[in-house]
Design a protein around this nucleic acid. Structure first.
Length: 886
RNA sequence: GGGCGUUUAGCUCAGCUGGGAGAGCGCUACCCUUACAAGGUAGAUGUCGGGGGUUCGAUCCCCUCAACGCCCACCA
């Protein structure tokens, strides 16, 4: 331990961070331990992607989760903070494929499935999971023995069990449907993974000849290249312009195929030309029209997004290129009328960023119609509560119009679908075991479905698969019964659909329980100007860089201070340095106390022994404690931070430490000892209050404050409000004390008296204040640098040649020898007077208003009366003395 | 097109169920005062987006307009 008298003037976080994380972790402080609450508190960490680098969003996750965990742990809950990592099917496969292409000029097909998957595992061992190291840096107090990867054995068993059960129940089914096809991934993706992005495009006006006539139908489309897939042209039956053509045949240009002209209400008379080409194979709406009219369905695309042989001479071209060529060709044929600029929303792959093609394909789906209804119920009846409540709407809006979930992905990295096929008898069945023969005909010619499951399928099971489900021995070992349902899910609003909704549905369906009691939805971290942090803008702030610069506690405090019920957190690195300064301030407050720690006693003196200022600081601390507790319970991290900040800064450092200097430098042993005791007591409580937010600094300081027998701070009890430490009178007294001193300092400042120059002061008081001020006159003298302080009755005469200031209960005079700039003083006082008068006018207006007097509650009326009287007294003081100046 | 949200001091934001507006940072002046210059003391700043309404009283409730942002939804 360093010498308490020789601590450095600045706190250096690095040392403490390395030291304490290790001690906590090795000392098993992160492990769940039964506490006085006899209850558990569980947070399952949203598993970051294995490919991920820690960004500010993760840092915010960790900060809020770890703050809650540390808070609850100290409150005496048996806490489990369960870490993990997600295999992130698409993202990870993409990373490795890219690396392979760059380094070896090979594709996954060159390797084959087995070898490729092995390659990803190798990559994962080598590069994956840096993020969990970074989480440690931030102080995440997870039980790392619970660490789970979504492809681990148990989650895999969970996935298989759920799939097989639901397959057998018919909830999971296979269907040939129009799905969102990602040509880059060459896989289907779910609706949730499609982003609609606004794109500048064109309406191409094309003429479709009408069979057995010289007429044409003018059709507007954004996608001329899909005309090879057209199987009808649709017109609204109400459309007077064209409806007589319904029933005739239109000829698709270029391929010269005849298609029926049909009537369908879906067609919008206003949009385009009012004539719609119907391409059921590549448009979701057209697909519906096709169903209504029993139209054939033509697939014109290859899996990689090029046109297939249906497109004749355009086969092999990408859609974008084909579009140009088709337009040129139409121009040649004189069947092209015009193009008009048109902005529209086009679906893009959330990961791949390429345009998504609706395409007919056979996929696995989960029927969510029933489970989504129940998931809504559970939130409606408060079994799970969102904080802030407003996010429930987002959750509902998704679950109220659910599309069946497309589960299968044509990838290699992930949980392979546990469905088997027999080549001989065409039998299909689902099985948790890897089958070797056909269940039905015993044939050995069987194979497993090659697709893998959507990553979110395993994520949806996360709250219980991490706790050992469905393996009973594992559940017992991991404490499933104790920790499930979990307590709070902390996440950003961007994955309410992807994740929260799915965990709710799956958990309710499988276990008939909601997976968590609370959902705290935190803000998304943006840059100072509110822009999303992105690579292209280069506006990202790297949390680890910030940790290196300012320390983990500073960044945690900054993120916590920015986290309440807001949806954006605009982060300015300057704020981090600001809170670094605050942390340093605490460090230095400790340095002040440090030399006196030995003197302090372990128990607080009896209340009758305490001085006014001691009672005051204890009362303020007590109130702070109450507010901090309440704030954490309501996920108001911002309020908690503010409360602690202002107590430490504005109460403890600015006044209590200042007021303690004389005592600690005096000879009075008892006074010194008593004050040292109060200081130490307060400081122990301050670091305890701070610990959930700034674990490192607080643990470091605790090591000096604790008794040898006491455990680490992480394992201490969180401070609670104590009614016996509520001293209202002392808090009110102290308000006067600080007001008078501030007034005197203000006066000194107005005539440029240097801080170290001492002055004489006379205060004229109401008699009822006399006692308080004479009792505290020594402290007033020292705080305001006064040589001689005279406390006089208001009836006494005021000194000549002086400057003055008034409060509602006293007049403060500072007699001066030299020349005073009277104009300045008059201006200052007149301004002050004006304020009072405005206040008085407002009050009297109200008090003269009969309606106000009749309807306002009595305490409000009383308050107004008091304000009026106080201001009248103050104004009177100023006015009287102003006359003297003039 | 549907829904949600935001608009308060130069910047970032807080203001609980209506009683006359706050914080941090920044800024200005003065200070190396024996915990801290990553500091101290003092100070300035707001038609609480516009308009209307309810009320004795509106930053807060209702209506309306505007700007910005987000989410969902059809590539005619």
């Amino acid at each position: 331990m360093s010498d308490l008298n020789n601590l450095p003037t600045t706190y250096s976080p690095q040392e403490a961070e390395n030291k304490w994380y290790k001690i906590w972790n090795e000392g098993k402080y992160f492990k769940p331990k039964a506490g006085k609450q006899k209850k558990t508190y569980t947070i399952i960490m949203p598993p970051p992607n294995v490919t991920g680098q820690l960004h500010m969003g993760h840092a915010l996750d960790v900060t809020t989760q770890d703050t809650l965990i540390r808070f609850k742990r100290m409150k005496g809950f048996e806490t489990l903070y369960l870490p993990g990592m997600d295999h992130a099917g698409i993202a990870t496969q993409a990373v490795v494929e890219k690396m392979m292409a760059e380094e070896e000029k090979k594709s996954r097909h060159d390797y084959g499935r087995e070898a490729f998957v092995k390659k990803i595992w190798e990559w994962k061992e080598k590069y994956g999971g840096i993020i969990s190291e970074q989480q440690r840096t931030l102080g995440a107090s997870c039980d790392w023995d619970y660490y789970t990867f979504t492809l681990d054995k148990i989650p895999n068993l969970a996935v298989k069990k759920v799939f097989v059960d639901w397959y057998n129940q018919g909830l999971i089914y296979q269907a040939e449907r129009l799905v969102n096809w990602d040509p880059a991934l060459q896989s289907a993706i779910s609706d949730a993974e499609v982003d609609h992005i606004e794109v500048q495009g064109f309406f191409y006006h094309i003429l479709y000849p009408i069979k057995d006539s010289n007429d044409f139908l003018e059709i507007a489309t954004t996608r001329p290249e899909t005309m090879f897939g057209d199987t009808a042209v649709a017109i609204n039956p109400k459309d007077e312009r064209w409806n007589k053509l319904i029933g005739k045949t239109a000829i698709i240009p270029i391929c010269n195929r005849g298609v029926p002209i049909i009537g369908d209400e879906y067609v919008d008379l206003e949009k385009g030309t009012g004539c719609l080409k119907v391409t059921p194979g590549h448009d979701f709406n057209d697909f519906e029209i096709g169903k209504r009219h029993k139209l054939p369905l033509i697939n014109i695309l290859n899996p990689e997004g090029t046109l297939n042989k249906e497109a004749g001479e355009f086969a092999g071209f990408q859609c974008k290129k084909a579009r140009k060529l088709v337009v040129e060709k139409l121009k040649e044929l004189n069947l092209f009328k015009e193009e008009k600029k048109h902005t529209h929303q086009v679906g893009h792959g959330e990961r791949s960023k390429v345009i998504i093609e609706p395409m007919l394909s056979k996929q696995w789906f989960l029927n969510v119609q029933q489970m989504s209804k129940i998931a809504v119920e559970k939130v409606k009846n408060n079994e799970t509560i969102f904080w802030p409540k407003g996010w429930e709407n987002t959750y509902f809006s998704w679950l109220n119009s659910p599309q069946d979930w497309c589960l299968s992905r044509q990838l290699w990295w992930g949980h392979q679908i546990p469905v088997f096929y027999c080549k001989d008898c065409k039998n299909q069945w689902a099985s948790e075991e890897v089958a070797s023969t056909c269940k039905k005909c015993n044939s050995k010619h069987i194979f497993q479905d090659p697709d893998v499951l959507d990553t979110w399928f395993s994520s949806g099971l996360w709250p219980f698969s991490t706790l050992g489900w469905p393996i009973e021995s594992a559940m017992k070992e991991k404490g499933f019964e104790k920790f499930f349902p979990t307590s709070t899910l902390v996440t950003g609003y961007d994955i309410i659909f992807f994740w929260v909704a799915r965990m709710m549905m799956m958990s309710i369906q499988i276990l008939d329980k909601v997976p968590f009691k609370d959902v705290y939805v935190h803000a998304l971290v943006r840059d100072k100007q509110g822009r999303k942090m992105s690579k292209s803008l280069a506006n990202g702030i790297d949390p680890i860089e910030m940790v290196n610069l300012y320390g983990a506690d500073a960044i945690r405090f900054t993120l916590a201070a920015g986290s309440g019920y807001n949806r954006n957190l605009n982060l300015d690195p300057e704020r981090i340095s600001g809170y670094r300064n605050f942390i340093n301030k605490i460090w230095n407050a400790f340095r002040f106390i440090a030399p006196h720690l030995e003197l302090a006693q372990s128990e607080l003196p009896t209340i009758s022994e305490l001085t006014h200022h001691e009672k005051w600081i204890l009362a303020e601390l007590n109130q702070t404690t109450k507010l901090v507790n309440e704030s954490f319970e309501e996920y108001r991290f911002d309020d908690a931070c503010k409360t602690i900040y202002s107590f430490v800064y504005d109460k403890f450092c600015s006044w209590f430490i200042e007021l303690s200097k004389n005592i600690l430098n005096s000879e009075g042993h008892n006074d010194k000892r008593r004050r040292a005791t109060v200081l130490k007591f307060s400081f122990r409580q301050i670091v305890a209050l701070l610990h959930p937010i700034t674990p490192y600094l607080s643990e470091e300081l605790w090591s000096y404050l604790k008794t040898p027998a006491e455990d680490l701070l992480i394992a201490q009890e969180f401070p609670e409000y104590k009614s016996e430490l509520h001293f209202q009178e002392d808090q009110e007294g102290m308000n006067k004390f600080t007001e008078v001193i501030t007034n005197i300092r203000n006066l000194r400042m107005s005539v440029n008296i240097k801080p170290k120059d001492e002055v004489n002061v006379q205060i004229f008081l109401d008699t009822k204040e006399m006692e308080y001020f004479s009792k505290n006159s020594d402290e007033i003298k020292s705080q305001a640098k006064i040589i001689e302080l005279k406390l006089l009755k208001k009836s006494e005469s005021r000194p000549a040649k002086s400057i003055m200031s008034a409060t509602t209960y006293c007049e403060i005079f500072l007699p001066l020898e030299g020349i005073i700039d009277l104009n300045d003083q008059i201006k200052r006082l007149e301004k002050e007077l004006l304020k009072c008068e405005q206040e008085i006018n407002k009050c009297t207006a109200k008090l003269n208003n009969a309606n106000f007097m009749a309807s306002a509650p009595p305490e409000v009326v009383f308050e107004v009366q008091k304000t009026a009287e106080d201001n009248k007294e103050k104004a009177e003081s100023i006015r009287k003395n102003l006359v003297g100046f003039k």
